[in-house]
Amino acid sequence: MDSEAHHLETLALREQFDTEDQQKDASTLGMWVFLITEMMFFGGMFLAYTLYRSTYPQVFGVASSSLNLPIGATNTCVLLLSSFTMAMAVRSGQLGKKRAVIWFLIITMLFGLTFLGIKAFEWTEKFQEHHVPALANFHLDGTPLQGQAKLFFSLYFAMTGLHALHMVVGVGIVLFIIMETARNKYSPKYYTPIDIAGLYWHFVDVVWIFLFPLFYLIDRHIGR
C-alpha cells in the first residue's frame, strides 16, 4: 500500500517522513513555531517598555540618553557580523565544506562572545555610574524622579539581560554544532541542525535590532 514507508532510515530521511524535503520543511516549520513563542515572550516586555515610556517620556528620555551609544552601536555591528558568518556557515553546510562550516561557526561564536564581553563592560559601567536599580546608591542625574528612572533601568537590565541569556544559549548551541560537524554528522543531504541553529542565532540578532533603537536611540535628542 505504501512502499515509501519501508525506505531505509537515514539522518536525512527518518522513518516517519516520505521525502527528505518533507522532513526538512517539518524541522523548519517547527523552529519557526518556537521562534514565534519567543517573539511573543519578548513582545510582552517590549509592550511593558513602550507603555512605561509613553507614561514617563521625560525621565525615560533622560535615562535613555545616559546609555553609551557608541558601545550600543558597536555591539549592533558585532551581532550583524555574527549573523553574516552564521549565514556563511549554513551555506558551507549546504555545500558540504566541513572545514569552512567549523571555521565560520567558530568566528560566529567569537563574535557572540565579543558581544557578551562588551555587554559585561557596559553593565560594569552602570554599576560605576550608580545606575543599578536594585542598589541603595542608585542615582540618575538630570531628574528628581528617581523612581521612574529606576523603572527604566529595571526594564533595561531585564530586557538586555534576557537577550544576553539567549546569546549565552546561542553560543552553547553553536559549540554543539561545531562538535557534531567535526564528528562528520552533517552532509549536503543533511545539514538541518546547522540551518536550525542559524535560525535561532538570527532571531536573537533580530531582537537586538529592536532593542538597540528602543533603548539607545529614540529619545537621544530629548536628553541632550
Binding site: D25, V33, M39, G43, G44, L47, F84, H202, I209
Partner: peptide, 29 residues
C-alpha cells in the same frame, strides 16, 4: 535578516503563513 539570512525567500507557504499569523498575534497583543 529574515528574508536572506533566515532563508524565508525559499521557505514554504505553510511556514510563511505560520510566521505571518504569529506576527498577527503580536499585533493583537
Amino acid at each position: 535578516v529574515i528574508w536572506f539570512f533566515m532563508h524565508v525567500r525559499y521557505s514554504t507557504t505553510l511556514t510563511r503563513l505560520v510566521m505571518v499569523s504569529g506576527v498577527l498575534w503580536l499585533i493583537i497583543l
